[in-house]
Design a protein around this nucleic acid. Structure first.
Lengths: 208, 208
DNA sequence: GTCTATAAGGTGATAGAC
DNA sequence: GTCTATCACCTTATAGAC
């Protein structure tokens, strides 16, 4: 079982217990695979009480999805607003982001899977959350203009960065099984090395 | 609805119709979300006949998963066995693989999602299929030894290549929504550009 | 707020006629 | 092989006592 993502500590609060349980179950099983009964069990209550707090499975799911999405596109992106060297910020972001994902390995799979099954519904929700990644692309463009990095489509570079961070987590069983022949330790070492490898790989590619 | 992956053309054959329908439904909805009734509807038959051919949902799922997995880790990898220049083979692979995934956008999400929900079950199946990617890593190591590419962990490079190809497909609604603000055409153009961009990006990073 | 009991409808699977 | 009808179970959701 995964740990819950949320930050509240009021464990005695029933609502909090429900949220924590729902995070664990939904993120592990997905909307279609999750069962209200199991969420109730994990929360240590019964189904009826679950429906008393959240009238339907879908309403509860939407609450959890928002929490998961915020963890998935983290405040971490804010580091790019700092005035440090771009490569320094990139190294910091990659290392910390892989760190976050490593501790919540089912998170990216959950968000990606659900968002591609209800794109309209969920994207509306995401828009309300008002995420902004434009400033990162602007910053990349500015770095290029100043000759600090090679010419590259800022969007492509951004996609490359997140691909290299997220995919190894989403594809854990795949990589662990096919590339490392089931050797879990080898997978973990790879992920640890990756916290510096990814930034090195990217910087090697884009430095002038 | 997606198109089916399989290659057979015997459309009148009931078994073939079932496989095609099951591919469409399972790959789009996943095991937990798929319904035998819907598969029957898409195949133009009824549930009973479905169970006549495949005794259970799980048996049918396993058949489809194997097909999907073979398409996901394609014969395309064989190009690395050729004797062309490594960078040439890399360019060819990236371009063709993104091409394949673009035409089956739900395929990688399906395989990754299901494999991480039944790792033991499915990895056993995968092992029976006897995939081999070791020769690619050997080849990378050889290139490094010959000084044709910079020192790099072959496994990390391999992971980088597939991450950069697959992630943009798995995360389509995400990228399309957050980076391109819902502009589908911009997403498609990005993917088209990516067929050359990814190899350029990688080669820039690893050329001596 | 929290529980037990149960309704209402869905879902995988089978029986049996043709 | 293919169909209709049906079973047995599961799942969400609600009613009503405390």
């Amino acid at each position: 079982m995964d740990k819950y993502i949320g930050m509240s500590k009021k464990d005695n609060n029933t609502e909090e217990k429900i949220i924590q349980a729902a995070e664990v179950v939904f993120i592990e099983k997905g909307m279609a695979g999750a069962r209200m009964q199991q969420i109730a069990d994990v929360a240590g209550i019964n189904k009826a009480l679950l429906h008393y707090y959240y009238r339907s499975k879908e309403k509860l799911f939407n609450v959890i999805f928002k929490i998961a999405f915020k963890a998935f596109i983290p405040n971490l992106l804010e580091v790019f607003k700092g005035d440090k060297d771009f490569f320094t910020k990139l190294r910091y972001f990659v290392s910390k982001y892989i760190d976050v994902l490593e501790r919540n390995p089912h998170l990216p799979g959950f968000v990606l899977h659900e968002i591609s099954h209800r794109p309209d519904n969920l994207m509306k929700m995401v828009k309300e959350m008002n995420f902004d990644v434009d400033f990162i692309q602007d910053q990349i463009a500015e770095e290029i203009a100043q000759g600090k990095i090679k010419a590259i489509d800022p969007a492509q570079l951004l996609i490359n960065v997140i691909s290299l961070c997220i995919f190894p987590i989403v594809a854990k069983p795949m990589i662990s099984g096919v590339i490392y022949k089931g050797d879990e330790k080898a997978y973990k070492k790879m992920l640890k090395d990756r916290k510096t490898h990814v930034a090195d790989f990217i910087i090697n590619s884009i430095k002038p």
